[in-house]
Nucleic acid binder design. Sequence first.
DNA 1: CTGAAAGCGCTTACAG
DNA 2: CTGAAAGCGCTTACAG
Lengths: 343, 343
Amino acid sequence: MPEGTPTIYDIAREAGVSIATVSRVVRGEENVSKKTREKVQAVIQSRNFMPSSLARGMSSRRSYTLGIVLPRLTNPNYAEIFTGASEEARSRGYHISMFPWQSLIDPQGNQALTLASWRLDGVIICVEYTPENQGETLIRSLEALRSYMPVVLIGCVPQCLQYPAITYHMAEIVRQSVSYLTELGHEKIALIGGMEADQDESRRDVGYLEGLADHKLPFISSYRVFCRGTPEEGEKALDAILDGLMPAYWPTAVLALNDLVAMGLYRSAKKHGLSIPNDLSIMGCDNIVSAAYLSPALTTIDMCQQALGKRAVDLLLCGEDMRQRAEWKLVERESCGPVPQRL
Amino acid sequence: MPEGTPTIYDIAREAGVSIATVSRVVRGEENVSKKTREKVQAVIQSRNFMPSSLARGMSSRRSYTLGIVLPRLTNPNYAEIFTGASEEARSRGYHISMFPWQSLIDPQGNQALTLASWRLDGVIICVEYTPENQGETLIRSLEALRSYMPVVLIGCVPQCLQYPAITYHMAEIVRQSVSYLTELGHEKIALIGGMEADQDESRRDVGYLEGLADHKLPFISSYRVFCRGTPEEGEKALDAILDGLMPAYWPTAVLALNDLVAMGLYRSAKKHGLSIPNDLSIMGCDNIVSAAYLSPALTTIDMCQQALGKRAVDLLLCGEDMRQRAEWKLVERESCGPVPQRL
DNA sequence: CTGAAAGCGCTTACAG
DNA sequence: CTGAAAGCGCTTACAG
C-alpha cells in the first residue's frame, strides 16, 4: 500500500477534532453536532479518506464482509449463485467477496484454511461432490472453519455435517424427470449423472431407480453412467453407451448431470447420426444461459440459482440452524419429444 | 466471529514462549531452534490456530492478497480471466479474491470505494466500456483507488488513464476478421458491436471501416449496429437489420460483439429461415466453452482469457508501468462459410 | 536463538 | 456532544 494513505489521525488533526469524533462521523452516528460533522466530512472528502477495513474489523470484531467459495467458475450457474448472494448481501449492508476453492482445500487435497484467516462475518460454501472433495479433508476443513465463522452450505451436503444448509434434492428431481419422459412414451431412459453425496435424497441414481420402479421399467445397467460435469465428459459418456450397444437397444432419452454435459451429448448424438429430439430426447439440469440458445433449445431443470444465493445469505445472517431444500422447476423447451415410433 | 478463536497469545502461553517466537514459527523464519519450533507447531496444530490476516495486514502493511473486479459474471469469459489470475497469484504466494463491480461504483453510479478499504497488495480491474461506467465516475474512482493500491486494468481502457494495462486491440481484430470473411467471398458484412472506449485502437467500428476500405467495400450504415453483450440484445439487433431490409440486401456475414450475442444471432437467423453458414456466416468473439457446442459450432476469436489473467497478475506484481496488448487468435469452426451463390 | 515493547488504524466504553 | 485511553492480534526492529 502506498505511503501517503491517510488515517483517521490525519483527518482528526486536519479537522481539529479527536479521532473518536472522526470515527463517529465515518460510522454515521447521530450524536455529533452538525457543525462538527460538516467540518469533518469536508476533510474526509478532500483527502479521499477510506477507513481501513482491517483496523475496523480488528477492533469491532465485525467485518461486514461475507465470503462465498465456489468449486469452479467454469460452470456458469455458480456465477448466478454469486450474483444472487451479492445482491442480497448488499441490500443488507454487507459486502461479499469470492474465494477460490483453494482457500479451503489446496490442490494437493490438504486442508488450507486461508479462508479462516480473514475473520469474515460468515461464509457460503458451494460443495460439489467429487471424489477429491468428499471425505475427510473437506469435513475437517469445514469443522476447523466453523470455529472461526458461521458457515452455510449449498449443494449436496454429506449426511454427517449438520450445518445450516440448502440442499439439492436430486433424487426427487430425477424421479420426476423420469416421469416426464415416460409421459412422452419413453421406456429406454439413460442417466448420465455424477457421484452425489452419501445420502439418498441427494443422489440422482437413487431417484433414477425410484422413477423406473414407479413406471415398472427395468433397470438396465449400461444406461446408468457416472461422469464429471463438463461437455467433454458428457460426449464421452454417451459415446460409450451408444458404441457399446446395438442401435436397437439405444436409449431414446437421456438425463444429463447438467447443461454442460448435455451440450456434450448433443455432439455425441450428432456424431452417431441421431437427431434431437426425433431420435433422442435430452434433458439437462441448471438452465444456464446458453441452454435456451442451443439448437434445439434444451429442456432442463431450472435450479433457481439466483434465488438460492439470496436465501443462502439470508440463512447465514439470520443465524438459524436449519436445512432447507433448494427450489427447482422443469423448463420445457425443444430437446425432449415423443418416443420415436420406428422400432 | 465466535468467541473462542485462539490468538497468538494463547499459543504462546500454552507453548511457554513469547508471542514473537510464535510469530517466527508461523511465518516460517529460520532462526528458531528445532525444539522450540516443534513445541510451538504442536500447539498450533492442536488448537487449529490460523493467524488473523487483518492483524497481520495491519502490522506488516502487506496483505498478500490481490483483488480482481469483474463487471459481471454472466459472461463466462470473466470466469476464465479469474481462473488464470487465481492460478498465477497462488503460484506466487498470493491469495486472490473477487470483488463485485459495486465495490468500485455503486448501482446509482456513485463512487463506492469499499474496495480501497481492504488495503490489498493490488487489484486487477476488468473494464467494460458501457454508457454507465465510462466517464467521470469511473475515472474518479480509479484515481482515488490508485492512492490506496496498485491497479492494473484489463480491457478497453480510456485514453486518459495512463495506468499499467492490458488492452484489447479490437480495431485490429475486427479488421482481420473482415479480411477473413472477404476471403470467403463475402461483401455484405455486418457488424453488431459495442461502444468501446474513446481510442481508435480499441474500437470495433474503426477496425470495421478499415477492413471495408482494405477491400474496397462500401460502408452501408444499416449494417453497423451497436448492442449490449447479451443473447437477447443480439437477437434483437439482427432482427432489426433483417426486418429493415429487402432480402436481397441482407448481409451474408455478421461479426458479433461476443459469443453470447452470436447465440442470439443464431436464433434470429433461424426465425428468418436462414441457415448457418449456408445463408449467413456468423463470427463470435471470446471463445466461451459453449461456443464449440453450438450447432453449427461457432467460429470465433479466442481472447486467451486465462493467459490474460496470468499476465495481469504478473504486471501487477512486477510493478512496471506499461501497457500491453492482449493476445488473440481466430478459431475456425463451422459457422462461417463461402458466400451464398444464389443471388 | 529468544523476549519486551512499540506500533499498525481503527472502535468502544467511560468520563466529562 | 466530545475526548482520552485501552484494546483488537499481529509484525518488526531492538536488546540481549
